[in-house]
Amino acid sequence: MEIVGHGFLARSLAPLAHAHPTTVVFAAGVSSAQSTCDAEFAREAGLLYRVLDRCGGEGRRLVYFSTCASGMYGTRDHRGREDGPVFPSSPYGRHKLAMEGVLKSSGADVLVLRLAHTVGREQRRHQLVPSLVAQIRSGTVRVHRGARRDLIHVLDVVTVIDALLAKGVSREVVNVASGFAVPIEKIIGHLERRLGTVAARQFVSAEDARPASNGKLLALLPDSARPAFGADYYRTVIDRYLDGPPAHSHGKA
């Protein structure tokens, strides 16, 4: 496997570097779902075009990471399914949908994975769980009232990718998510219990995000590769984040 990129996801996928030799994984996208920077979007697009062109010429499969957060599906009533409508509500979501369109129209051998909020020890400080941990430790945490987040641990993402590629899944769009959109207050509460402190709340308004469906994902995965998703899965994600070693020290050599 060729891994394009050097960030959190790219490093986490390193244990698969010697597997799936005909696959290129594009892990060099914009890292923040809050980004509104046209220059960052343009950088990702330009690099993706070059990698896509090379994959087409070499007959290789390309894996692209999109998003299944509310920035993609929006906050309207929807099933959160890959074959249903999407209503991107953020510049990041609109950018990812545009990149998906480029990949689809290319006719190339492409697998698009729409990721939930991926959590792991080496992710950047601006991402959800590291940001919440830092805020709680500072004594004040910003709470987006009504917000929900689907958390998935990066090691489970790696297991899922390995299984999908081994099965030969391609020319598909797949949500990689737990299927449970957890109220942000519950996520903060579990973090506080684990950190042994309670932070003052600063409430801001937010629209409620609907959960993304993982039915397609579960149908594609063998039982041995299915993470233990459930209503309390987010707690194990947080516990593994706080207790576990760096992501790249796990998995296959």
Rank of each mutant, 00 (worst) to 15 (best):
V198N: 00
I152M: 09
P130E: 06
Y49D: 15
A28S: 13
Y92T: 00
D232T: 12
D77W: 04
D239V: 03
A116F: 10
Q135M: 11
D162F: 07
V119M: 10
Y234L: 10
R61M: 06
Q135T: 01
V86P: 13
A19I: 06
S35G: 08
V119P: 13
Y64V: 05
S66Q: 06
G80H: 04
L195T: 02
V133A: 07
A166I: 00
G215L: 04
L195Q: 00
F87C: 05
R50G: 08
S66Y: 05
H126M: 03
A228W: 10
V169C: 13
G215Q: 05
R171H: 10
I136D: 01
G7R: 10
R148F: 06
H18L: 12
A45Q: 11
R60C: 08
C55E: 07
S106K: 00
V157W: 08
L48Y: 03
R148G: 12
P15Y: 13
E122Q: 09
R142M: 14
V110K: 05
V25E: 08
S105R: 03
A69D: 15
R201P: 10
R149K: 06
I188W: 01
L155Q: 13
D77C: 02
V24W: 15
R194A: 02
M1G: 03
A19C: 14
R124N: 08
G59Q: 05
G251F: 04
A28T: 05
R149C: 03
H18K: 13
V173D: 04
F229Y: 15
P245H: 05
A225M: 08
S224N: 12
G93D: 04
V63M: 10
V143S: 00
R125A: 12
R125F: 01
V110G: 09
A42G: 04
N214Y: 09
Y233G: 11
S89Q: 06
H78M: 00
G46W: 01
L128Q: 01
E58L: 15
E40F: 04
E2L: 02
P130F: 04
H78G: 11
H144M: 05
R142N: 06
I152A: 03
V110A: 03
K96A: 09
K104R: 14
S105D: 10
L48T: 07
G120E: 01
K252C: 05
I184G: 01
T23Y: 15
H144L: 09
K104I: 05
L191V: 07
V51D: 12
S89H: 06
E207S: 13
L113P: 15
I3R: 03
K167L: 08
I238M: 02
L155P: 10
T236M: 11
S32N: 14
T197N: 00
T67V: 09
I187D: 02
